[in-house]
């Protein structure tokens, strides 16, 4: 019961965040990028609900607009990651042989450097914009989905209904789209959900280091990057508000993802893999 309650509250919070992201211009009280040098570092007040940053920009409005950036990066990166993993895992598992071993060696190679290091290397070589961050996240995360999809494809391929389809002369594309893909749907659903949470964390981490979203866009990570200088002055609101938003968002997506996982994954081995 508790898990259902948790995932429901996760869903409600996510719904609210989606609403906030779409309605940001209506809810925000100030222009999120307009500096007001007359009122820098203001503590939260009725005029500035979350206070202002070192340039006098309204933090409440910035946090609202930050929802858009995080959601966009999180969902697009997750979708691209899982798409890549599905494509490569299916190809390896279905066609087997040389293709399979070549692709799995590629997975081994990309798995070896720590994710953080590979990410930092990748963002260095691209020009900094939202899409290069999404690409970098996808490139460093597709491997686990690919491995799982491959092993599932291998086991589905050997089931009687696929064997009979093959013996009836069904084409590869028919078998892949009619017999294998539907049985992999749960991996896609669960992976996209959990990956969204991870991608939001990754984006905020890169932006925090000053290697992510371009600094003129109000993303939560960028705000925390700027908050670093405030810490020494004892200013807490520039850290607390964007930070709390990250935790709330990631937490509710994770709650939802875990509930989906327990409901959709057929057995324990798959559940730990996901």
């Amino acid at each position: 019961m508790e898990s259902i309650r948790n995932s429901c509250s996760g869903l409600i919070v996510l719904g609210m965040l989606a609403l906030v992201a779409t309605m940001a211009p209506l809810i925000s009280t100030h222009d999120p990028v307009k500096a007001s040098l007359a009122e820098p570092d203001q503590a939260p007040s009725l005029n500035h609900l979350f206070g202002t940053d070192y340039l006098g920009r309204d933090l409440f409005s910035r946090v609202l607009y930050g929802t858009r950036v995080s959601m966009l990066v999180g969902i697009s990166a997750a979708a691209l990651t899982v798409f890549l993993g599905l494509l490569i895992g299916l190809t390896a598992g279905y066609f087997g042989g040389f293709v399979d071993s070549a692709l799995m060696r590629l997975v081994d190679v990309i798995y070896s450097p720590p994710e953080t290091i590979l990410l930092m290397v990748l963002v260095t070589i691209f020009e900094r914009n939202i899409w290069s961050i999404i690409l970098a996240i996808a490139f460093t995360h597709w491997m686990s989905t690919a491995r799982l999809v491959r092993s599932e494809t291998l086991s589905i391929r050997q089931r009687p209904f696929v064997e009979s389809a093959i013996s009836l002369g069904a084409k590869d594309s028919y078998i892949i789209f009619r017999h294998i893909m539907p049985n992999l749907l749960y991996i896609v659903v669960v992976s996209v959900t959990l990956m969204t949470a991870h991608a939001i964390l990754t984006e905020s981490f890169l932006s925090f280091l000053g290697l992510g979203i371009p600094p003129h866009l109000p993303s939560w990570g960028n705000m925390l990057n700027e908050a670093q200088r405030d810490i020494m002055k004892g200013i807490w609101w520039t850290t607390i508000f964007p930070g709390t938003m990250i935790v709330i968002t990631v937490l509710s997506i994770n709650l939802l993802g875990d509930e989906l996982k327990t409901r959709l994954a057929p057995n324990r081995e798959v559940r730990t893999e996901l």
Binding site: A197, L201, S204, F205, F208, L224, A227, Q228, I231, G234, W236, T239, G243, I246, V247, V250, L251, N254
Partner: peptide
């Protein structure tokens, strides 16, 4: 909650 909290946030708060 810990699992959903980025490390840099913990670091900033600890420093503060």
């Amino acid at each position: 909650i810990l699992y959903s909290t980025p490390t840099f946030l913990v670091a900033l708060l600890a420093m503060l």
